[in-house]
Structures are given as C-alpha cells and as structure tokens.
Design a protein around this nucleic acid. Sequence first.
DNA 1: TCATTAAATTGTT
DNA 2: AACAATTTAATGA
Length: 254
Amino acid sequence: MAHAAQAGFPPASHATAVVPARSRPVQEADLANIPWLDRLDDAERARVRTDMRVVNVAPGELVCRVGRPVTYWFGVIDGLLKMSNDSATRGGLGMPITFTGVPPGGWFGEGTVLKNEPYRYNIQALRKSVVAGITAGTFHWLLDRSIGFNRFVMMQLNERLGQFIAAREIDRLTDPDARVARSLAALFNPVLYPGVGELLRITQQELGYLVGLSRQRVNEALQALQAAQVIRIEYGGLRVLDLERLRRYGAPSA
DNA sequence: TCATTAAATTGTT
DNA sequence: AACAATTTAATGA
C-alpha cells in the first residue's frame, strides 16, 4: 500500500532527463546478453549492430516516460529497471504502482512500438544499469523479414501475459513471505530474463519497492525463504536454490 | 598489491 | 525509523 514515501528514490519528476543523448554504439561485450540476436541471420545482425545504441543510466534515471513518443525498443544489458505508472497523469488513480522489475536479458516496449503509441509506463533504473535500444524502424524491419525474431516477440508477449496474471494472484496473497517468494520467482523467469541466471543482483530495499513491502519485512521474508532452503541471501543479491519451490511457496501443499 | 577509508547493504531493535 | 555490524568499492602509497 504505502510505497511512495520510502527513502531511496525521489518520485519520478518531469524534470528528469529521458534517454540521454550520451549513448554509444553497441560493443562486443554487450552482445552476449541479448537473447534474440542468435535468431537472426548475418545480414539482420549486421543491421542491428549499426542501429543499436547503448546507454549507461544512473540509479533513479528514467529510460522512458509515460506519454513520450516511441523511438526505441529497449533491453537491459546489465543492472535493474522497474516498470511503473507513477506520476502518470492519465485519468485514473493517482496511486503509484510498480508493475514489475526488468532484470538483465529483459526487453520491453514491443507493445507500444507495435501499435506506435506513446509509452504507457515509466521505466526507471533501480541501480546503475546498461540499457540497449534499437529504433522502431529496425524493429519493424526485423518483424517483416525474420521468422526467428517474430517467434521471440511472440514468446515474449505470451510469457509476459502469464507474468501479469501471476501478478494478480500475488496481489491477493496475504502472507508477505509468499508475496516476496512469488515476486522473486517472476524475476527469475528464465524465458523472459535469460540474463539473470541463478544469481540476481537486487538489494532488499529494491525488492521492497517491487513487492510493496518495507525493507524490514522483506528481510524477514528472505530469512524465512533461506531457512526453507529455497534461496540463499548474498550481499547485494540473491541466489535461487529451488526455483520450483519458490514459485509454489505459500500454496497449499496437499 | 596491500592497507586504509568511505560507501553501501544487511540485520536488529 | 534509527542504529550497529558487515561487505564491497575506492583510494593512494
């Protein structure tokens, strides 16, 4: 519930810069963390490499903002972003809601790029991150000629639908431990976020933002999960020992 | 490379 | 919310 007044990040204000012009061309080291590249042929990959831009963003910085025209399809090379509707001025609840975190390997915005609509969410960096983007033009060019790319986008849309359905379930859970467990499991989704691996770099403060709980309560929940041998707490991150049990945590075990 | 210091994160009250 | 303890990152010899 209460969420905005916690220490850490200022509410996304309209004064913050969006997609700074200090981007650089993509480098060899970045490419390893882009899950759809190996589905392209050489010509397609060549175009992507010349088109793609990479930018380093500081914590709290906005990558894209509600209402801005679509220019890029974005992906996380490293770091952690959050997708939220805070400071949205649409006619609705003014309540800030964090929808999901976007860990390395996650690509987003295809829905708005497809429909050529303005962005509907804010994307803000939770920690120092590296974000890549290809232009809407190249995105459509790939859709028009690459079956592998189409499969990736289709899989991505389908998988994310499942995530949002799961998110609704999480919202109904009363047990904070279970909420933390399921939210974590979502971040470890190997299909959507192949870059995460078994170790997710996220602080307990950041996790609190994502789940909507205080840092103390998150800490308590993580201790419980660790005691259950489901995860292991590490400094500045978490290691998953049993993803299946993490997904089911809190469910009736009969 | 190592030792020292500052900053970040965690664990507890 | 505040505090102490711990870990990492940064600095400079």
